[in-house]
Amino acid sequence: MLIWKSLFSKPDAVLALAILCAIVLAGLLAPVAYPDGPWRMVARPLLAPFADMRHPLGTDALGRDLLASLMFGARTSLAIGLVSTCVATVFGASIGAVAGFFGGRVDSALMRSTEMFQTVPSFALAILLIAIYTPSTFSIMIAISVVSWPPVARLARAEFLSMRRREFVQAALLSGQSNLRVAWSQIFPNILSPLTVMAALMVSMAILFESALSFVGLGDPKVVSWGYLISAGRGVMSQSWWLTFLPGFAIMLTIVSISILGDAIGDSQDPHFERRESK
């Protein structure tokens, strides 16, 4: 397939893909490697990394294994990142597509309501939503989706609006294809690359958002996430810096990989890609 071919032709994309696979694998294998879960106190508190090879990354202030926490944290952070991005992208893109395709009053109505969401500070809105429902993985996902769909809607609307006037779209409509079919098979493939790039950025944004929520103490209390680890480790940062550094590093690694991959996928959607490379 074209996507794989162009991905594998770029070394940075291959590296990013490898890192992401490793993180996903770590998350999947967490219950196998640590059947007792991340909350058990297993060793002396504040053990430094590599001091005891049974706990290679050391322990936190309560003697819990940091590697186990990081692996379980990957599950939460990635799940929240992916699910809320999917929900926000699908919802935002549909709203934007309808607004851009039909234009006129439909467009104004939908865009005014989108702007209502954009005028409220997103972090405050998310906190409010989570405070109304009890903090849980599900409510966090919903809250992040609710605050992050408006930019997608605006992007999709702008793209649909300009595509709608293109002659190949008019020709497709004239030839008798239905609105839905034209939107899906003629316009959508052409806006896929900006959407992919945006979605990749949103995954990173969602992970950061969840970290911020956990940091202020609104994370799901039943599960570990990278953000929770950072906020838990900040009290002992002066002596045990790795307790904040390592989860932060994990977040950075994931986000950079996703961005690189998003760009690469965006490029691979371009039919001129092969030609440009060969020149």
Binding site: E167, F168, A171, A172, Q186, P271
Partner: peptide, 10 residues
């Protein structure tokens, strides 16, 4: 303009 009138991805 035949370039604009054809979907570049099809």
């Amino acid at each position: 303009d035949p370039t604009a009138a054809l979907n570049p991805r099809h």
